[in-house]
Design a protein around this nucleic acid. Structure first.
Lengths: 222, 222
DNA sequence: TTGACGCCGTACCGTACGGTACGGTACAGA
DNA sequence: TCTGTACCGTACCGTACGGTACGGCGTCAA
C-alpha cells in the first residue's frame, strides 16, 4: 500500500481541483485510461491499461499505488483539463447577463453529454456506492467538486453581481443556482448516465441554454 | 445460458413496468437483494444473497438464470412497488394544479433521496456503462422507464389538461416537463448519486416542491 | 567502462467470485 | 409406502484480475 506515488509532484492533500503535475509519460498513461473508460467504462483491467499505454504493471503501481490511485489520478487529470467560459464581472447589463448565462449553460450541456464526462461520472457514481463506509476512493467527492460545486462557485458571484447591479432579486443565495442548474440541465444528465440515447446537437444545446437563461431571468430578474 | 427462469410467471418481453408476478419466496429473496444493495451497493456476491435469504445458489440460478437476471428481477420487483400520487384530471383550477404539482414534486424528491432509490440508480448507472454494446443487462432502460419516463407519462396529461383549461400555455409539449423536472430536482439527484451528504428533511422537500410549483406556474401559467 | 536507475514485458501468485454438482430433507400425490 | 419434486447447504471448478517479482534493455553520469 504505502501510498507510493514517487514521481508525482502534488500531494494528495485536498488537491481536488488544483492541477496535478504529472510527467509527460504519466499523462500519456492517464489519457490511455480515459480512452479505456470511454470504451469499457469502469471495470477495465490494469493489464488493459498496460497494453494500451505500453507500460508495465510495475510502473503503474509505482506511480499510482493501486487501482484506486490510478482512477483518482485519472479523474483529477481530466478535471484539470476542463476549462469553463469566462463570466463577466463588472458593468453588468441585462443582455450581458442573459448572454453569459446562456453561454455557460450551452457549454455545460456540451460537457455533460460528452462521452468522457459520462464515463467519469458513471465511474464516480459506481464507486460512491461501494463499501458502506466508502473508505477510500474519493471519486464522487472529486467529481462533485469539479462538477456542480465548480459550476456554483463560478455562478454565485455572477448572481451576486447581478443583484448588486439591481438586475436580480432573491433571498436565499442557494436558490438561483439550483433553479438555473435545473432549468439548464433538466433530466438530461440522469438520462445520459442511465444510457438513454440522448444525442443533443449543437443547435439543441444552444436552444435549451437560451431558454434556460430566459426563464431564469423571468423568475429572478427585476 | 438458456434463459431459464422456470417458475417465474411473466416473460421478459418489454415488461419494464408491468408488475412481475413472483412467488412469495421469490419476493423474499428479491427483498434480501434490495437490502444488500442498500448496504453494499452493486457488487454483492451471489453467496451473500444466499446467506441473507437462506436459499441455495442452485435455486437462485434456477429462478433467475444468472446474476444479471437476478439484478433485473430485483429492479423490476422494486419498480412494481413504487406508487405515485394521484393527479387530478377534470375540473382543474389554478390552485388545484399548483397543489398537485407541489405534492408530486415533494413525493418525487422523497423517492429520489431514499437509500433504495439511490442504490438502484447507482447500479443502473454502473451497468449502463459496461460492455460497449451494452449487450444484456437492460437495467438502465428499466430504471429510465420507471423513473423519468414514468414521471413524464403522469405529468404530460396534467399539463395538457391545464392547457385545455386555459391555465397553462406552451408550444413544445416536451418543454414543461423538462422545466418542472429541473425546478423540482435541480442538482439533488446527481449530488446524492455522487455520495454528497444531502439529507433533505420533510420540511425542506415541501419547501422546494412548493417553490418549484410556484416557479413553474410563473413560467407557464397564463 | 561501469554501475545505478527507470522502465518494459512477462511470468507468477493468491484470492474472490460466478456458476455447477451433488447429497440430504421435506412434502405432495399415487 | 414409494416416487418425484422442490429446495437447502456445501463443496467444488474455472477463471479473471489485482498485485508482485524478475530478467532485460536503454540512458546517463562518473
Amino acid at each position: 500500500m504505502n501510498m507510493a506515488v514517487k514521481t508525482r509532484a502534488g500531494q494528495e492533500t485536498a488537491a481536488d481541483e488544483r492541477t496535478e503535475e504529472f510527467s509527460v509519460r504519466q499523462r500519456e498513461v492517464l489519457d490511455a485510461v480515459l480512452a479505456l473508460m470511454v470504451e469499457e467504462g469502469d471495470g477495465f483491467s490494469m493489464a488493459a491499461v498496460c497494453r494500451r499505454a505500453s507500460c508495465s504493471k510495475e510502473t503503474l503501481y509505482n506511480w499510482f499505488g493501486d487501482r484506486d490511485g490510478l482512477l483518482t489520478a485519472t479523474v483529477q487529470w481530466q478535471a484539470s483539463k476542463v476549462k469553463m467560459p469566462v463570466l463577466p464581472g463588472e458593468g453588468l447589463s441585462r443582455v450581458a447577463l442573459e448572454r453569459a448565462l446562456a453561454g455557460f449553460a450551452a457549454n455545460w450541456l456540451a460537457v455533460l453529454t460528452s462521452d468522457l464526462s459520462i464515463a467519469l461520472n458513471r465511474a464516480a457514481v459506481s464507486h460512491a456506492g461501494q463499501g458502506a463506509g466508502s473508505g477510500k476512493s474519493r471519486l464522487g467527492e472529486i467529481v462533485l467538486t469539479n462538477g456542480p460545486d465548480a459550476m456554483r462557485r463560478r455562478l454565485d458571484p455572477l448572481f451576486a453581481a447581478g443583484r448588486d447591479a439591481g438586475l436580480l432579486a432573491f433571498e436565499d443565495a442557494a436558490e438561483p443556482f439550483r433553479a438555473f442548474f435545473g432549468l439548464a440541465i433538466g433530466d438530461t444528465q440522469i438520462r445520459v448516465l442511465l444510457g438513454g440515447t440522448v444525442r443533443l446537437t449543437e443547435a439543441e444545446r444552444e436552444h435549451r441554454a437560451a431558454l434556460a437563461a430566459k426563464q431564469f431571468l423571468a423568475l429572478y430578474g427585476t
